[in-house]
């Protein structure tokens, strides 16, 4: 019963870690998952989120076993 979190790029550097795990609870949003893993530290501006590798709004609900990723705007190409 857990949610896996991954962080990328500048966010990973500023947090000092690439991943976390939090216990699953019913009715958790993506933003709730961030808050649980980061002791209520506010999510930095412009950070995007993905659940199971699809972009989602921060208000999306997560399911047990989901992988949630947080990262800054993409800059490839």
């Amino acid at each position: 019963m857990s949610i896996t979190l991954h962080y990328f790029a500048s966010l990973k550097e500023s947090l000092g870690r690439a991943s976390d795990s939090v216990d699953y609870l019913p009715n958790l949003t993506v933003l709730d998952v961030w808050a649980l893993a980061n002791q209520d530290q506010p999510l930095p501006n412009l950070i995007l989120a993905a659940v199971n590798m699809d972009y989602v709004p921060l208000t999306s609900l997560v399911e047990d076993g989901d992988t949630v990723a947080f990262f800054p705007p993409v800059t490839g190409g």
Partner: peptide
């Protein structure tokens, strides 16, 4: 460029580094 999750970090001649935002 808009959607694929890649991120660039530049290493400058001044020896500073910065993420492309």
């Amino acid at each position: 460029k808009s959607n694929a999750p890649f991120w660039k970090k530049e290493h400058l001649s001044s020896d500073q580094s910065r993420w492309v935002t």
